[in-house]
Design a protein around this nucleic acid. Structure first.
Lengths: 150, 150
DNA sequence: GTATATGCAAAGGGTTTGCACGGTT
DNA sequence: AACCGTGCAAACCCTTTGCATATAC
């Protein structure tokens, strides 16, 4: 583990939140699943604690995000996906045609983000970035960028 | 005007779609409003044709996007915003704290996008890009990246 | 003991869909 | 005349909210 997870409870406490089994389980589920929607997180949590409610998952994710333990990105049409903040910084490439999602190293993007910060003062949340377009395979097959996506 | 708008009806026709008043009005509304949600587009369209239905706007936007006349980006929590494709390429910076949206020139981003294409084969739809983070003002004021946003 | 967190159920926003009618080709 | 596009209404998914109960502190 690492500082983030060792100290998850301290993070919550120092921000004035209470420690509950639900919060622990949701955080563990996000950590374990890597990129999961609230619904998927609920299913994971229910394996251990079947009584947990979806609205609790939503409220918990909001809290965990507030204290910086998790973040989310918008991939695909529907629900956002959550992941723990200390994952290796990465960005998401979402194919508008085949819907496949790739996670790629965020270092190159970070350079662009830094120039943005220097020139515009805007600080990008890199973990949140999802770029839409055509993956290698689809770009080679077709040409019209349909992009019905998300 | 320009090629895109002069030929909007040909674009549709050659793709096998029919020309209808609704499609013309929706395209005009998107052009005029610049970054508008389906709901906002409907209101604009209704000024001229009060009988038009929301579902028609959705279906029409899908068609217009398929033939490459419009595209959309995800800004804020809720509905996506649509804009015409021949707008000067730009990307959106969405502040997670104050919710303000800036549109900035997309040239610098395009360089990063090109490197992505070279190295990963992924072709980014630049008009679709929305980067989330903290705007200059909010970055200077606070520090915790809350990012409740969408 | 008190304030916060949870479960439940209902409501809400945004989007999609089935169907019959009307309009474009 | 044939087919596509539209309006309408219902259904759908995802998310939020009010309230009473339970729980962490």
């Amino acid at each position: 583990m690492n500082d983030y997870l060792e100290a998850w409870d301290r993070r919550l406490r120092t921000a004035g939140f209470r420690i509950t089994p639900q919060r622990q389980l949701v955080l563990e589920a996000v950590t374990h699943l890597q990129h999961a929607t609230p619904e998927e997180i609920l299913e994971e949590v229910k394996i251990t604690a079947s009584g947990v409610n979806l609205s609790t998952v939503y409220r918990t994710l909001e809290v965990l995000e507030q204290v910086g333990l998790v973040t989310h990105a918008h991939i695909g049409h529907g629900a956002p996906t959550y992941h723990v903040v200390d994952d290796a910084p990465h960005i998401h490439l979402v194919c508008s045609r085949c819907r496949k999602v790739e996670s790629i190293n965020g270092d190159a993007f970070a350079k662009y983000a830094n120039s943005l910060e220097t020139e515009n003062g805007f600080v990008v949340n890199i973990s949140h970035v999802a770029l839409h377009g055509l993956c290698k395979k689809c770009a080679n097959e077709g040409n019209v960028v349909t992009d019905h996506d998300h």
